[in-house]
């Protein structure tokens, strides 16, 4: 019988702990597939964040380091600089990367640190129970913005890709959405390019993945992916924000 689909070697046998309808699982799968297809098995160091993906070290089939909240790009820098021949990636959420870890991500990008960052933007703090994130949309309700996010009180959401694309360091910055098959396929291409750039020594690459959090958004999984597609992409437009190969 012909095999049409297989579990990728770059994921372990450990079942994911993610909620039903959460797109972390898709993101993990895409990263793992890309690493396997690039043939770098046995040459990878992954950095897990604090947040829902804290247990990522149980899932990726490679050496893993668990970093303090927001510090994954600094930890990745230390690992990469002392092991320049290894593929090093940091996997971070929006609270981790765009709030407490803004200094680390900006300076890793500014240095052109030769690492790959996977940025999960689901506009909410998932693990701590649905608090407002730096990327929470205006009007979006969270446990700490119960009447909906307001500009007066909370300011506007932070657009990380746009911000990092202004720097000279990054080689590739893209935003994709894990909302439907076509966009998931695009996301995989972007992730692969981000790793290819690292392997080619081109420097810092980041892919932002607009993701869903049905549990904390109070939606069904289908409502949640629709929200990603229809609402989040208005504030966070999809596309490639920087690509030194095209400049």
């Amino acid at each position: 019988m012909a095999v049409v689909f297989e579990k990728t070697n770059m994921l372990t046998e450990t079942p994911f702990h993610y909620c039903p309808g959460c797109t972390h699982g898709i993101a993990h799968r895409l990263v793992a597939e890309c690493l396997q297809e690039l043939g770098v098995e046995g040459n990878v160091i992954g950095i897990a964040p604090v947040g829902c993906a804290v247990f990522a070290y149980n899932y990726f089939n490679c050496d893993m380091q668990q970093a303090a909240h927001g510090r994954a790009p600094a930890v990745a820098t230390g690992a990469k600089r002392t092991n320049p021949d290894k593929v090093v990636f940091a996997y971070q959420g929006d609270g981790d990367l765009a709030s407490i870890g803004t200094a680390e991500i900006i300076h890793a990008a500014a240095r052109g640190e030769n690492i790959t960052v996977i940025f999960i933007n689901n506009a909410i703090y998932g693990m701590t129970g649905g608090q407002m994130a730096p990327t929470t949309l205006l009007g979006q309700k969270s446990t700490t913005s119960q009447a909906g996010r307001s500009v007066a009180l909370n300011g506007n959401p932070i657009k990380v890709c746009e911000m990092l694309a202004t720097l000279d360091g990054p080689s590739y910055i893209a935003r994709c959405a894990l909302s439907d098959t076509a966009n998931v396929n695009k996301a995989k291409k972007a992730i692969k390019k981000a790793f290819e750039n690292q392997i080619a020594g081109k420097g810092f690459a980041m892919v932002e993945l607009l993701s869903s959090c049905p549990t904390n958004w109070g939606m069904t999984p289908t409502q949640a992916v629709d929200f990603v597609k229809e609402e989040m992409t208005k504030v966070f437009p999809l596309g490639v924000y920087k690509d030194i190969d095209k400049e």
């Binding site: 160091i45 600094a74 230390g78």
Partner: peptide, 22 residues
Amino acid sequence: FIQAESEVSAINMVYGAAAAGA
């Protein structure tokens, strides 16, 4: 040698490098 963006980053770079065996 890296001059980090902050002491916070510097110690976490140490974490990453030490974790990777350096």
